[in-house]
């Protein structure tokens, strides 16, 4: 019972989604199911927030190593939620909405929530991604060795595409002497990059996408037929 009902729910809802793709009569049902999905997923996200609080409160109460950082996490979490939910600094945006104090958009420029996004969220996230530039370069320096044909192909392509995107992309060749009279010109690096992108990259990505699609279809069918129940977890 504890597993049969969920499997039935997953199968029925999944089948409605598939059939709705082929039948216009079921399109409203598909739209409603999509809305419901968003709502359930949103409320599930609240559970994620509750778990975050429980985990960090436990760290603090047990005085575990680094509990101070847990306190920082909780403080920043609650401040963000309070500022966002109370719409601190948000003002109505039109003459008709002046009497509705909470009617302004929660991400309005100049509001508290906007400030948090602009000066806390965005800089930290983009710097963390920027940091990867150093680690990718360092890892490449350590790992890239032209040991065999595959590695040589990877290295040369990376070099061509890297140069092809710089401001010197119009250069005709990499340290090659100019061609002799009557001989065809060297292919510009930018053109070569474009050719690689249009052919080999497209082909490689396409093959990977086809593989992923077949994998997703197989996994979805296993879930809808009740063959894969791993998402239900162990017995409770």
């Amino acid at each position: 019972m504890s597993k049969t009902v969920p499997v039935l729910i997953a199968s029925i809802v999944g089948c409605i989604m598939i059939v709705a793709n082929f039948s216009p009569f079921l399109l409203p049902a598909r739209q409603i199911a999509e809305d419901w999905f968003t709502i359930v997923a949103t409320i599930a996200m609240m559970l994620g927030g509750a778990n975050l609080c429980v985990h960090h409160l436990k760290n603090i109460s047990d005085r575990e190593a680094g509990w101070g950082f847990s306190a920082v996490t909780l403080i920043s979490f609650f401040i963000t939620i309070a500022v966002g939910l109370l719409k601190i600094g948000v003002v109505p945006e039109s003459e008709q909405q002046v009497k509705f104090a909470w009617s302004g958009p929660f991400q309005q420029e100049g509001s508290g929530f906007w400030w948090i996004y602009q000066y806390l969220f965005s800089p930290i996230v983009s710097t963390m991604f920027a940091l990867l530039a150093f680690y990718v370069a360092s890892a490449a320096f350590r790992a890239f060795r032209a040991k065999n044909l595959e590695a040589i192909l990877l290295l040369i392509t990376a070099l061509i595409v890297l140069v092809g995107q710089t401001r010197d992309r119009e250069i005709t060749s990499l340290f090659l002497p100019p061609p002799a009279e009557g001989m065809p010109q060297h292919v510009p690096i930018a053109d070569l990059t474009e050719f690689i992108r249009k052919t080999f990259v497209t082909a490689g990505q396409r093959a990977i996408m086809i593989g992923i699609a077949l994998g997703v279809v197989a996994t979805s069918l296993r879930i809808l037929l009740g063959l894969d129940r791993s998402y239900l977890g162990g017995d409770e």
Partner: peptide, 19 residues
């Protein structure tokens, strides 16, 4: 598990056709 099954079922149905 019920809401989880709903989310998984919806995702499976949507992704099967879209992929």
């Amino acid at each position: 598990r019920w809401p989880l099954a709903f989310v998984v079922g919806t995702t499976a149905g949507l992704k099967l056709t879209s992929f």
